[in-house]
Nucleic acid binder design. Structure first.
Lengths: 207, 207
DNA sequence: CCGATTTCTGACCATATGGTCAGGACTATG
DNA sequence: CATAGTCCTGACCATATGGTCAGAAATCGG
């Protein structure tokens, strides 16, 4: 256990440096994945020395673990907000917009998650089959209710959710590709994406 | 230059071993990304010694390069097949199905590509802004023609293509997550995905 | 079956990397 | 301003990793 980490967030310096390190680590891990990242890179990004990093955290794995914990919480939040409503289409489209905003505002978190999943999710497999599955099943049931009440068109709820996840996260995870293909029209990519996805999911859900 | 690579694919052994190495490398690189993979891993996967690997290839980078070259060719193929037709909706849905089949049959290639893009596409940036952009622009123009002729509903062609890419590749790149969430219903995931995506894109394109 | 060529290996090297540690520098507090 | 505790560093270590090389082993053509 790193000397400082145990008494978590006690002093001002501890709080500041911890955040500084986590921010740098997010930058590095989200780009190169866990195995492709080095403590030296994180140290350089944070403007600290390697031993200083290891003064605050037990090691590379520990830093990564904290980031994943925070991430998963943040990740489930938008879906959590999906609740029953008189206007299910609007409710679902609002969810799509929240996810797209996350892709725009927190692309590093999205890429960290993508990297982890791509590599087989060795460190978050339990959460995937646990809290993520539970929440997804719950919301899929809600969507099925809407279908049963004939408020939206019949769609497979789980795969609808997959489509929402994939289309929105694409703008974070594959941003390099999106910008390359769009060229000079890249600037407004999120506005146009919002319009497009809104249209698309409305069409899918329309009875 | 590796002694064998220069006289490319001359002898039988060279052809066999080269393929053996590339297959092992695809397995490793697609899982751990370029920086996270080691020659030792590739050697172990291929059942060869490290120096033997380096007898056939100039180094880690060279192996990765060959894989990316092959990948990009394979990647552009399904989109290439998108041509003018009396039934644009069917034409586009066929493309969606081809992409989904690729996600199912060549998940390693999809993940290799995803890893490369996630890490900022340092090695294929030129192809992204070159051949990929050219082809995508061309097909976007075709789609725009269909819209102008009022054969399909008005959609942003580029973002429609992004939606196709993301929804289909999701089943390869995020397969661990998909299976975790679906649980025991994972078995038929590709059949249900095909049905769902078919419905979805038909709804989007319907006038 | 013999010499020439190709294929393969163990031993080795330089560097990178995760991590440790003794002790010095700094800071908050009485 | 003394000092107890916190914070930080240079030097160091063990292992991992990309890559090399001399020569052994296998293969091939005649």
């Amino acid at each position: 256990m790193a000397r400082a980490a145990s008494t978590k967030g006690k002093t001002r310096i501890q709080r500041e440096k911890t955040e500084q390190i986590l921010d740098a680590a997010l930058e590095v891990f989200s780009t190169y994945g866990f195995r492709g990242s080095t403590i030296d890179q994180i140290a350089a990004e944070a403007g600290l020395s390697k031993p200083n990093i290891l003064y605050y955290f037990d090691g590379k794995e520990a830093i990564h673990g904290v980031l994943l914990d925070r991430l998963l919480h943040k990740w489930l939040e938008p879906l959590n907000q999906l609740t029953d409503s008189d206007d299910p289409t609007r409710e679902i489209c609002d969810y799509v917009m929240r996810k797209l905003e996350m892709a725009r505002d927190f692309p590093r978190e999205s890429r960290l998650f993508a990297n982890e999943i791509l590599q087989g999710a060795p460190r978050i497999h339990d959460q995937l089959t646990g809290s993520l599955k539970t929440l997804t099943d719950e919301k899929a049931t809600l969507i099925q209710h809407w279908i049963d009440k004939e408020k939206i068109a019949p769609v497979d709820p789980h795969h609808l959710i997959f489509s929402i996840w994939s289309t929105t996260q694409h703008y974070a995870d594959f941003d390099v590709q999106v910008q390359s293909v769009l060229g000079d029209k890249s600037e407004q990519r999120f506005e146009i994406a919002a319009d497009h996805l809104n249209k698309m999911f409305r069409a899918v859900l329309k009875k």
